[in-house]
Amino acid sequence: MSDLAVTSGRVAWRGKLGTESAPAAEAPDARRALQLGLAGVWLLDALLQYQSVMFSRAFGQMLAATATANPGVIARPITWDATLIEHHAVALNAVFATIQLLLGLGIALRPLTRFALAASVAWSLGVWWLGEGLGGVLNGTANPVSGAPGAVILYALLAVLLWPADRAGSAGEAEAAPFTAARAVGARAAQVLWLVLWLSLAWFALQPANRAPLALHDQLARQADGEPHWLAGIENGAAAVVGSHGLAVSIVLAAACVIVAAGVWLPRPAARAAVLLALVVAAAIWVVGQAFGMILAGGATDPNSGPLLALLALAYWPAKQRQARGERASSC
């Protein structure tokens, strides 16, 4: 309690102003900290979904646009869903936003973490299809700079990798997971998932629509619209630097993704360097490529893939052997 008296004496308020004492904070282990990071992104996602534009027909129209050029079997449900949302925008968007809010709050609440993570996988898969058109993977519009393979599928991947259980594999594997993401699914499965993700990003970066000389320049220049002055300056500056060298930048980005993909198979020092590179790529994509998910321009549905790639990278940070054993003992 504080001993600072704000008022005292003969006036009506004779008390002292103090601060309630708080019990010591419990430090979460690495996996719990990442789960909380995921919960925070879900929470941000939910609150963005409550923006006024999401309660208008524009939201349904935005979803309908993701059906374009997708195979019929994928596109038809998207069109049906988008039409439904257009006609019942207020009620359905309120439900969507509330579900996402509950997912974020549920992951953060320890007794509900498992349930919320499992629900988030199902929700993410549904949104990836009906809300993001599978992230443009099948219609040739997927671009790692703009969020491929779809931000929401990364939520599902994180939920699986951060599942609060330790895999009962071989004795050595159970004793010390080499990184946090390996604890639930095992080291080999986690490495394969990482490899597939980053190789797919490299592949998308080299697609014709993304490697065209002016493709990246135009994309960055478009991001500046509606952004605050300082962020528009970053976007326009980056667009000027890229200029007509879209092909060269795409090759550099793809090479970085390949190095990152291979990184988790390398010895610990090299793996750490690769994960650091992944963090740098994620930060560059989020700030320059995605303009913080265009949240500052208003009307963004989520913070896009940058923060999720960074969370994934942190989940693959090579752990010290002793630390890994200790974390196993205190799993959440």
């Binding site: 004779r14 008390g15 002292k16 102003l17 601060t19």
Partner: peptide, 9 residues
Amino acid sequence: WRRGTVITD
């Protein structure tokens, strides 16, 4: 209103 009580900020 009592002397010596503590009001939490």
